[in-house]
Design a protein around this nucleic acid. Structure first.
Lengths: 147, 147
DNA sequence: AGTAGTAAGTTCCTTTTCAGAACCTGTCAA
DNA sequence: TTGACAGGTTCTGAAAAGGAACTTACTACT
């Protein structure tokens, strides 16, 4: 099976990863959430090759995660911004951050954490089921549907 | 920059993705959460090549996400199980599922959703900050540390 | 007029990774 | 002795990624 065939699968994990499971893609989106909008800045910050970055931005735009906006004419220049669909990925990013900080300790370098804009206090992310108010773990939940 | 250099970065997104951001890796973990433990089953379910599956399982074991347990001697046979570190990835998986079901609609095929084991009702996952009790969005939270 | 700088890519070439299939090893059962 | 099973390894060709240089359409400086 090829990677691109995943888009049509019934499993939502496969469908989701067909969009964001690519090498570099989530790192590009991290920069987008940090407010980086331009090709040159992303390329320099990420250390990704220009070729791959152009490809990822194209695919993210095609999938409706980013949109390409012209910010000047002559010469034409564009910047990339998160769409609503892109912004909806924030929980995925936060979950990765939380997991990495707890389980993939940085080697020497200081860690980056998330803090509340309001209080400045570190945040403690937990997945809650809004219907029951309880925490979601692999024990309390099961998959339903044709898999 | 090479992909493997990400492990030593200060950014937790980069460190996390150096472990789980690889092609196929999260799909292997999906199967683990579904209770699949053996090489043959994973290979058949995923449609991944045996070579790549062996590689991913090796890396996941090296990173402490899975552990390899012998379940019979002569001939030696092993199965793969999630460690605590692996189980801690459940929120990442759930976030991907939630996003995909909302934003990457299946083409024709019926969707797979998560339900509460207790009530059988569909769950509605939301990321909450345990300190404030409020929902976490890209507006309410900001990164702190050297990035 | 000529030179340098900027932004967003594209092109070319090499190296790495992946897909697909076949093969290997040790054991049991027919 | 042949076949099946489980968990891999080995091989070859195709696809993707890395690295560096080049392109285009401007603006600003000398």
């Amino acid at each position: 099976m090829k990677w691109n065939d995943l888009q049509t699968e019934a499993c939502p994990v496969a469908r989701g990863l067909s969009v964001i499971g690519d090498r570099w893609t989530m790192l590009v989106l991290r920069d987008c959430f940090l407010g980086v909008r331009r090709f040159e800045q992303m390329q320099e910050r990420l250390g990704i090759t220009r070729h791959v970055l152009a490809d990822r931005l194209r695919k993210l735009e095609a999938n409706g995660v980013l949109r390409r906006e012209r910010y000047q004419e002559r010469p034409p220049r564009h910047e990339y911004r998160l769409t609503e669909r892109g912004k909806a990925l924030y929980p995925v990013l936060v979950s990765v951050i939380e997991w990495a900080n707890a389980h993939v300790p940085p080697t020497g370098a200081p860690s980056v954490t998330l803090v509340s804009r309001e209080t400045g206090e570190p945040i403690l992310p937990v997945l809650i089921d809004m219907n029951t108010g309880k925490e979601i773990t692999y024990r309390t939940v099961t998959a339903l549907g044709s898999d």
